[in-house]
Design a binder for these strands. Structure first.
Length: 834
DNA sequence: TAATGGTAGGGGAGGAAACTTTGGACATAG
DNA sequence: TATTGCTATGTCCAAAGATTCCTCCCCTAC
């Protein structure tokens, strides 16, 4: 490997009579994790990441201290001073008096700087604990409020140095003895923000086969793709102890940023951990600071963490990014990669192992390989990388899946810069009454031709900006902007809200990224072509959208630090009013409004042709693009169908944002079983064909298709695979009555049958007796023959209900469909259905 | 190192409550 | 005239069935 000499500065120091030459280096890196180590008298900031040159790096920074703000209640500081457990850890010489604005009032505060992050919590806690407070012997008028007192220290560091997810550091190699295992370990003098760049993370994907009878490990196969793109495969066999030790050693040597595998959170990780215990080995030590991994209970199941790396379960990623109907590795790799697992019966693994070790090793290795490919295919790392860049947080923060830290990252910085207090997050209120949300228009059932769709662009963010809504402008006395629910906000001339400022900045950012996706075509001046960085900027602009859209939700979350119920209620009230303006106008003009939801209206055009629709769409758009709101003319649908339920539509798109698709229309479908993952394939395939027929063939053909389908399933002429239901199963403790839930009963059965099941997985099953209560069913296993007889009667009824909702519009209800299937002419034999 | 975006809505399943039908015991009329 | 055997009918009451209503749950739209 050749060093990049341009990044070196020679720093010559004169020490006594000798010249000592030290090398100052600069590095650019993307932060994977920002954390810290508490030392005796200070805290060391630790940033783990990967550089633009592909090296793993630990950046250390000394001299940055934790702090928080405490309201200056008389005597409060004395309480801290007298607490022997806390006072020695406070840097009293750094104590500052500051004024912070909170709820339109100026509050006198102490800025308390301490040695360790844990001290901040202790200071807060002593005011919560009556005994500690009493023992201080001080009577307080009231308890002081705390501000900026729950920000993680690594994040605090990034806020204060205004860092994003990519940074530039200047420093020297860390010479002290240290536990860090990255290629580079730098003690930084300067840490500065850097423009975002793409990083090639290294990734390890592993899979373990375990004996069913002895519970010991048979083999561990894994693949590593290094930062330079090369891939290596390892296959560990031998004694369990050797395999465990070897795995740890290779992880440290190869130093992957990301560790993955299929269902590792549910199986491989806890299993590995158990085997370490069984072999009297310490926990797997794979942290980049030499520490062991650890697990945390999240919603009744475990998640695994390791310092400096990300443990990303490929199953979780597949679930999150592609919402597959089933979640077995076999199904997902078929769906996403068009590849299969190798043919080894996992529930008979001991026999297979005895028969042919080579086959089991190949099988195991392929599983690890598939997990790696799934992560690639879904572009998981790109997505998180972008989200981290826009959210200005380390990669681990976005990986955790929470969106509030991304919003926090922008708002807290903004609040602190402007001198506003940053409250600590609250606890959920069990008595909380939901605020009123959006309007949904009752749709007009039937087939409609030439329907124009208009919707407000970014309705909630726009609403926040237009009405200057923010905790910093909410002023019930002086506010002149009065929301429909009575909240009063200061106008921007008096004080521009910080939330609107952040939203505006995000929008500008998005426009900038969008612009960078395209460049002038050198061959065709005036024409735009994709820029070489098209994909990169596309990802970034999408990340901005994700964060913008989350803003309303976060501000309306009770636990969020900037939560104000009346602001949330005002946002939705203004939004309802905006939609209502269009609805009223459309009704006044006597135009048929066929549907509408939150920010959109579906209007049937009085002119039954594309040009007429375009005229109407543009007219609506012009009419209602005003006062900061932008109504977009989105689509023309022809035809458009609904059976009359909200949020359930099916249509053909013949015009989409300027593109004419008359000859080859896109399908537009919302809510129907077609889009649902908890229905069975035959049902949703049939429904899709039925809706297609409704749109293209007319009612008669559609009805006979529905009748035929119900008949076929009633006769049992459908494969087991096509009638398998699939439902997510949570940990049993999450249910009020676990055994009443079919998915719980199926999960129990799966386990009894010797299959791996971990909570939060989807389970597949087929009903065998729908008359019993609770209904009887058996698990369906991918690729295996279903050994029971399905209750075709039950399936016929289900199909009839689903298809009947559609055909009912044309006078043929579920009962009639069933009647045809059963070849009966009278209703009485199954009167319940009618 | 206890972490957490929201509300609106459709639709299936299970189960309790309210309601209806059924069937046995008994009485009475013929 | 009184009693018995038998059937038809009515009433009461509990069990069984069918409905309705509510809640839980999953998943989706926005």
């Amino acid at each position: 490997m050749s060093a990049d000499l341009s990044g070196f500065l020679l720093d010559v120091l004169y020490v006594g009579t000798k010249f000592v030459v030290t090398s100052m280096q600069t590095h650019r890196l993307k932060i994977i994790q920002a954390t810290y180590k508490q030392r005796q008298h200070d805290t060391l900031v630790e940033l783990y990441g990967r550089t633009d040159t592909g090296q793993s790096i630990t950046v250390l920074y000394e001299g940055f201290y934790p702090y928080c703000y405490m309201e200056a209640v008389p005597g409060a500081l004395e309480v801290v001073r007298r607490n022997g457990a806390v006072a020695p850890k406070v840097l009293w010489d750094r104590l500052e008096d500051v004024e912070l604005v909170h709820d339109q009032k100026t509050i006198k505060c102490h800025k308390i700087t301490v040695m360790h992050p844990s001290v901040v919590k202790k200071i807060r806690d002593q005011f919560n604990t009556v005994n500690v407070l009493l023992s201080s012997g001080i009577n307080l008028d009231r308890l002081p409020q705390f501000f900026s007192a729950d920000i993680k220290f690594g994040i605090r560091f990034m806020y204060d140095l205004d860092l994003g997810s990519c940074i530039e550091v200047m420093g020297k190699p860390y010479e002290e003895e240290h536990p860090y295992t990255t290629e580079l370990v730098i003690l930084a003098d300067i840490v500065a923000p850097a423009e975002d760049f793409q990083v090639n993370f290294s990734i390890l994907s592993y899979d373990i086969e375990a004996s069913m009878s002895t519970k010991t490990m048979l083999c561990n196969c894994f693949w590593i793709r290094r930062s330079d793109g090369t891939e290596v495969e390892y296959r560990l066999i031998g004694t369990e102890k050797e395999m465990l030790k070897e795995f740890q050693k290779i992880i440290i040597e190869e130093d992957p940023d990301v560790i993955t595998g299929y269902n590792i959170d549910g199986f491989d990780n806890p299993y590995l951990n158990d085997r370490h215990e069984a072999n009297y080995l310490p926990r797997l030590k794979i942290g980049r600071n030499g520490t062991a991994w650890r697990s945390r209970d999240v919603k009744n199941s475990k998640m695994w963490f390791v310092t400096g790396r990300i443990i990303a379960d490929a199953m979780y990623m597949a679930r999150k990014f592609s919402n597959p109907r089933r979640e077995t590795l076999q199904y997902v790799s078929q769906l996403l990669l068009d590849e299969s697992k190798l043919d080894v019966n996992a529930s008979l693994i001991d026999e297979e192992w005895a028969k042919s070790r080579q086959d089991v090793l190949d099988y195991c290795s392929k599983d690890a390989y598939l997990a790696l490919r799934i992560i690639d295919k879904l572009k998981v790392l790109d997505y998180y990388s972008n989200l981290a860049a826009v959210g200005m947080v380390p990669l681990t923060t976005v990986y955790s899946g929470a969106t509030s830290p991304l919003i926090d990252s922008h708002l807290v910085r903004e609040f602190e810069k402007a001198g506003f207090a940053v409250p600590v997050g609250g606890k959920p209120d069990p008595d909380y009454k939901k605020i009123q949300g959006a309007t949904v228009v009752d749709p007009e059932p039937g087939v409609h031709n030439w329907v124009v769709v208009v919707d407000y662009k970014a309705l909630y963010p726009t609403t926040i900006m237009v009405h200057n809504m923010c905790p910093t402008t909410l002023d019930m006395e002086n506010g002149t902007i009065v929301s429909p629910v009575g909240a009063r906000f200061l106008p921007p001339e008096i004080r521009k809200g910080l939330v609107p400022i952040v939203i505006e900045r995000l929008q500008d950012m998005r426009n900038e990224y969008k612009a960078k996706m395209w460049v002038e075509d050198p061959d065709n001046p005036g024409e735009k072509i994709k820029s070489p960085m098209h994909g990169f900027y596309k990802g970034l602009q999408n990340a901005v959208k994700v964060i913008s859209n989350a803003m309303y939700g976060i501000l309306t979350a009770t636990f969020y630090r900037f939560f104000k119920k009346i602001i949330g209620a005002s946002i939705t009230a203004y939004a309802r009013a905006a939609l209502d303006r269009i609805i009223q106008w459309i009704r006044k003009m006597n135009l048929p409004l066929v549907a509408g939801d939150t920010d959109s209206c579906f209007v049937r055009s009085p002119w039954p042709n594309l040009n007429g629709c375009i005229t109407l769409g543009k007219m609506l758009s012009n009419q209602f693009t005003a006062d900061g709101y932008e109504l977009e003319f989105e689509k023309v649908l022809n035809p458009w169908f609904t059976h009359g339920a909200k949020k359930r539509y099916f249509a053909h798109v013949v015009w989409d944002d300027g593109k004419i698709l008359l000859d080859n229309p896109d399908v537009y479908s919302r809510g129907y079983e077609i889009r649902r993952t908890d229905s069975f394939d035959y049902c949703l395939d049939s429904l899709e064909e039925l809706l297609e027929a409704v749109c293209t063939e007319g009612a008669e053909t559609a009805v006979s298709l529905a009748k035929e389908r119900v008949k076929l399933i009633y006769e049992g002429s459908v494969s087991a695979e096509q009638i398998a239901y699939s439902k997510r199963c949570k940990p049993e403790a999450e249910y009020k009555k676990p055994e009443s839930q079919i998915q719980v009963r199926m999960a129990r059965m799966l386990k009894e049958m010797g299959h791996r099941f971990t909570p939060w997985m989807k389970v597949s099953f087929i009903y065998t007796d729908g008359d019993k209560s609770p209904k009887q069913a058996y698990p369906f296993i991918d690729g295996e023959k279903f050994p029971h007889t399905p209750d075709w009667d039950y399936y016929a009824v289900r199909m009839a209900e689903v298809l009947g909702r559609v055909t009912d519009v044309f006078g043929c209800d579920a009962g009639a469909l069933l009647q045809y299937a059963k070849g009966q002419t009278s209703l009485d034999s199954y009167g319940v259905i009618a």
